[in-house]
Nucleic acid binder design. Structure first.
Lengths: 127, 127
DNA sequence: GTAACTGCAAAATATTTGCATCCTT
DNA sequence: AAGGATGCAAATATTTTGCAGTTAC
């Protein structure tokens, strides 16, 4: 299916580019002009199908979308974990750093998870 | 808050005990007699608060509940990952086997993730 | 007896879809 | 011109909540 370069697409993409966090639909909605909810969802799902963004499910069950600059493009099975900082909200991909040791005979195929905690910047700020 | 030993609780608990997989609400609903949806959700959320079951969010965004026999009780922050076998559907806790290496300064607080793949039993069966 | 539990109905939330119209290519 | 994209409204799905009646302890 061909994609067209519309203003809505550009605005949603810009919103994603403006942040290093994974954004939920409503975060994106508030950053773009007057694009319809359904349209934003359709755009995001197409981005995800095309491997432009990762769709991750937060521990709140909601969908979050993140341009994943550290990852190869077209990598939308995202075989890695994400780290979400509880303090600043930033979401990062943990591509190289995660090593998972499974019991013998276990074959991992897809990783999908979020580790919540404090990132390096926030953990160095004294409470 | 005190808990009462009602028939509904027993039936939901039995449903969870009858399976080594994490069950969604509708799976449990179909295994118990005529308990109301809202009641099942309330029971499951209380089980989760009490640390009897893990509430995990599937990659479909839905809630799944699993008695976690390998884990200490009262461990409802579930600082470990789960493994879901694509072939047999079994869900297991991966308490000891998972080692996550984060960048320096990063402090993990909660892990919530599901690794999908094939378990030892299924991977030994030739396709 | 009282506080927790239940069923019912309705609300809240998140996401998708049908359809007529618009706009990019 | 053709087919993807959009807005609107309505549908769908999941989970929660208010409330009045019931039950366990």
């Amino acid at each position: 299916m061909k994609r067209r370069n519309t203003v809505s697409r550009q605005e949603v993409l810009a919103a994603l580019q403006s942040s290093d966090r994974a954004l939920s639909h409503d975060m994106i909605q508030s950053e773009v002009s007057g694009i319809d909810r359904a349209t934003i969802y359709r755009i995001l799902n197409r981005f995800s199908e095309d491997g432009l963004v990762h769709k991750i499910i937060g521990d709140d069950g909601k969908q979050y979308f993140a341009l994943c600059v550290n990852c190869e493009k077209g990598h939308h099975h995202h075989n890695h974990f994400h780290f979400r900082c509880r303090s600043c909200g930033k979401v990062e991909c943990l591509r190289e750093e995660v090593r998972v040791h499974l019991p013998p005979g276990y074959i991992p195929e897809a990783f999908n998870g979020v580790i919540t905690g404090q990132c390096g910047a926030c953990s160095s700020i004294p409470a």
